[in-house]
Amino acid sequence: GEDAFLPAPQNISILSTNMKHFLTWTPVIVQGETVRYSVEFQGEYERVYANESWIPISECSLLTATVCDITGDISATVAYNLRVRAELGASRSQWGTLKGFFNRITTSLTPPVMKVVADGYHLLVELEDMGPAFQFRVLYWKKGQERRMQQKVVKEASSVVHLDTMEAGGDYCVKAQTYVEAINRSSSFSQTQCVRAQGDTSLW
């Protein structure tokens, strides 16, 4: 039969959190049919030096979902264009293009998930592994001595981090933020967590 007219996908937008970037759009509805989608990107290099060429994202070719993980292709801190079109059989819609550019520098950074542990007299922190792009700035202090706050920069969240050796029975507090060097930005600080060292403060 005659190829159906397919409208271009609408409401194309980016969801970007903690350097993970997703392109989303609203579905194109054709009764009784499964519409598929294909996504392409164009970096500043393609726009300026390569005749405004577009590059298909193979993982998002003939996709039935209306979301595409573009993280792997947004790997430079430059302005990217993104577009998506609908496909049904031999029919292709026009391209729907993201309004405005996307630059990963705008990703939203959330405070890191952390767990503070008092292991006897040792103040430890466990940090969520957020990927190679992330470092952590950990601040810690003895309760009531905020002015003597100390800092530790953690480059890899792979294991438990030893922060300090605590005084017996002392209360110690910790908060942390992430830092992404590629975009030179930090998250806000996590909630402060406090723990108490073992032992009794009234020994003296």
Partner: peptide, 17 residues
């Protein structure tokens, strides 16, 4: 090769940065 082209794009755009 689409994979190679995408990596070249990644390198080229990083060069711009």
């Amino acid at each position: 090769d689409s994979f190679v082209n995408r990596k070249i794009s990644s390198i080229a755009n990083s060069f711009l940065s």
